[in-house]
């Protein structure tokens, strides 16, 4: 009897968590189905919306790709190569990782100003590419992969690049998928950087532009809200298992 009650309570908690996660998606879906005219408003009447959508997708893809390359290289170096002052380098990266945007925006602004990159997309892309986040994740991931894998590949004469991209990254693909997904989502939601680095409001990405839409225009809001969910949700569907398993490899050591 006591066991049944426990089971019911546990299930109830799990199901309510699932409902909380799914609720907003169904709410938006239902809103879209109830107001099909919004589809035309979004796709035909608001050209700047679609333009922003693809533009933001491009920016996020560039950030994610850049961050992934830089992170896999740096992570492997920290995990498997004899670097001088390795702990010190790692310490710098961890400290910078923990500094919130509220601290780094002003330094980044000053340097982007000196480089003449303010008010360009590079101001959004470059600092995000060089965030230490992915490097730390890949360091933790590669650390959990046994040295033997790398040794045997090296024995077969694989060069460093081949070793990284054809042996180590596939072996640490759960970590790489986590970096990809988390970086993309973060970039897709960016608000602080465009508001500070871009003066020209017309260059704002979708994340900030959506805030300026008229919320009382329900058909347009529902459809644009649903469409902006699409890229990240598709990525999650694709990489969910890697993300779930990613933690195991990272925390192993």
């Amino acid at each position: 009897m006591k066991k049944t009650i426990r089971k019911c309570a546990g299930s109830l908690a799990l199901l309510s968590a699932a409902a909380a996660a799914l609720g907003p998606v169904f709410y938006l879906l239902w809103g879209c189905i109830a107001r099909p005219q919004g589809f035309f408003l979004t796709f035909l009447r608001t050209p700047e919306y679609l333009y922003k959508f693809w533009n933001s997708l491009g920016i996020c893809a560039a950030i994610t790709a850049g961050q992934l390359v830089v992170s896999c290289m740096g992570g492997l170096a920290l995990a498997k190569y004899p670097l001088p002052c390795r702990r010190f380098l790692l310490g710098i990266l961890v400290v910078v990782l923990l500094l919130p945007l509220q601290v780094t925006l002003t330094p980044s602004y000053l340097i982007l100003d000196r480089m003449g990159l303010l008010d360009t997309v590079w101001a959004l892309i470059l600092p995000a590419v060089f965030s230490p986040f992915g490097t730390i994740i890949m360091w933790m991931t590669f650390r959990g992969i046994p040295d033997e894998l790398m040794d045997s590949a090296q024995m077969d004469g694989a060069g460093p690049m081949k070793l990284l991209w054809e042996i180590m990254v596939p072996a640490g693909r759960t970590g790489a998928a986590s970096v990809l997904l988390l970086t993309f989502v973060d970039a897709w939601n960016m608000a602080e950087q465009p508001m500070v680095f871009l003066r020209d409001v017309s260059k704002y990405p979708l994340s900030v532009f959506l805030a300026s839409l008229d919320r009382n225009n329900f058909p347009l809001s529902f459809h644009s809200g649903l469409l902006s969910m699409l890229p990240a949700v598709l990525l999650l569907l694709n990489f969910r298992e890697e993300l779930m398993e990613g933690g195991g490899l990272m925390l192993e050591k």
């Binding site: 968590a17 699932a18 799914l22 907003p24 608000a191 959506l210 809001s221 969910m229 990525l235 779930m244």
Partner: peptide, 20 residues
């Protein structure tokens, strides 16, 4: 079900959620 949906809030864009 819970395991499959639990990561959804992480990827939903803030703008869409704020609308809701």
């Amino acid at each position: 079900l819970c395991g499959r949906t639990i990561l959804l809030p992480l990827v939903l864009p803030i703008a869409s959620i704020v609308m809701v």
